[in-house]
């Protein structure tokens, strides 16, 4: 078992509890021993990163430090934005000794251990798309997706900027497709799978955001997908919870179920509803479950 520090982020703690429960239940099946970090805060999302960048750096340095304190090599995330924020902060510290020294001085001043031992930040997606995690995934997904058509939605920040994320070609990603197929599903291709769901501006500029949001949902629908899977709870929130707003705007009721990555793999691996918590979704997942005879 690979021991990793687990940072679940804000949404998995609250409105997307289903992501956390599915992840925690899935982890041992793919060889991950999760050590949940407790003395952590929100990573700041794009908001603190933009508005208060120095604070953003320190908040994330604190998370990295507490992860390092668990004596692990990997800090595991389950959200695109957390991944980008933590990786960017990590590169800022690893690449500039003076900056790291300054940040560490501040951390220590408030009672946080200095960030000295390096950790690598990796999204669960990367852990199970390749290598040991992938092999275990194949074995674990025995219940399988039974040919279900799944549209992968990457969103933005798990792919870009690629010089920070770097796991796969940002224009030709393959990780979600590979996982879908390993779980017995059929991956559906469509152009908007790497575009933005609009979540960052869904409150401040709703109309613009909805103009973005409709693209993956409409395209996945027209490609015959049974569901969309996404590695980001923020994308999940807009794709799932805001889907009703699309109906109000366009008159079209897509009824497209949106699954978190952990749930997709989890349902293929035979996790229970208590673990998967599909009931928490705004758009019903029932059609998928019926097809899977779950």
């Amino acid at each position: 078992m690979k021991k990793v520090a687990y940072y679940k982020g804000c949404l998995a703690s609250l409105s997307a509890k289903e992501l956390d429960s599915a992840t925690q239940a899935l982890a041992p099946k793919v060889g991950l021993e999760l050590v949940e970090l407790e003395s952590v805060t929100c990573c700041g999302a794009g908001d603190i990163h933009e508005a208060d960048p120095d604070y953003y750096l320190h908040l994330n340095a604190r998370i990295l430090s507490y992860a390092a304190a668990e004596n692990v090599d990997t800090l595991l995330t389950v959200c695109n934005v957390c991944t980008l924020n933590l990786r960017q902060a990590n590169f800022m510290l690893l690449g500039d000794a003076d900056l790291r020294a300054r940040v560490n001085e501040n951390l220590v001043a408030v009672g946080v251990p200095a960030y000295e031992r390096d950790v690598d930040v990796r999204h669960l997606l990367w852990e199970i798309a390749d290598g040991e995690g992938y092999e275990l995934l194949k074995g674990a997904a025995h219940k399988g997706l039974k040919g279900l058509k799944i549209a992968p939605f990457y969103g933005c920040q798990i792919l870009r900027p690629s010089k920070i994320q770097g796991f796969e070609d940002p224009d030709r990603p393959w990780s979600l497709e590979r996982i879908i197929e390993a779980c017995g599903g059929e991956a559906v291709d469509y152009p908007a799978k790497i575009k933005c769901c609009g979540f960052p501006i869904i409150q401040a500029r709703e109309e613009t955001a909805l103009g973005e949001l409709i693209q993956p949902i409409e395209q996945a629908y027209e490609a015959g997908a049974d569901a969309i899977v996404t590695p980001c709870p923020l994308c999940h929130l807009s794709l799932d919870a805001w889907q009703s707003k699309l109906k109000a705007q366009t008159g079209r009721d897509f009824k497209m179920p949106i699954l978190h990555l952990s749930q997709l793999v989890g349902v293929a691996a035979g996790l229970t509803e208590a673990e998967l918590k599909f009931k928490r979704h705004v758009v019903s997942v029932k059609p998928v479950l019926e097809k899977l005879e779950v």
């Binding site: 933005c156 920040q157 870009r160 940002p170 933005c196 609009g198 960052p200 501006i201 401040a204 955001a209």
Partner: peptide, 11 residues
């Protein structure tokens, strides 16, 4: 504040 943070421009 209308920027959607898709990072396509950086890329």
């Amino acid at each position: 504040w209308e920027c959607t943070r898709c990072y396509f421009c950086n890329e």
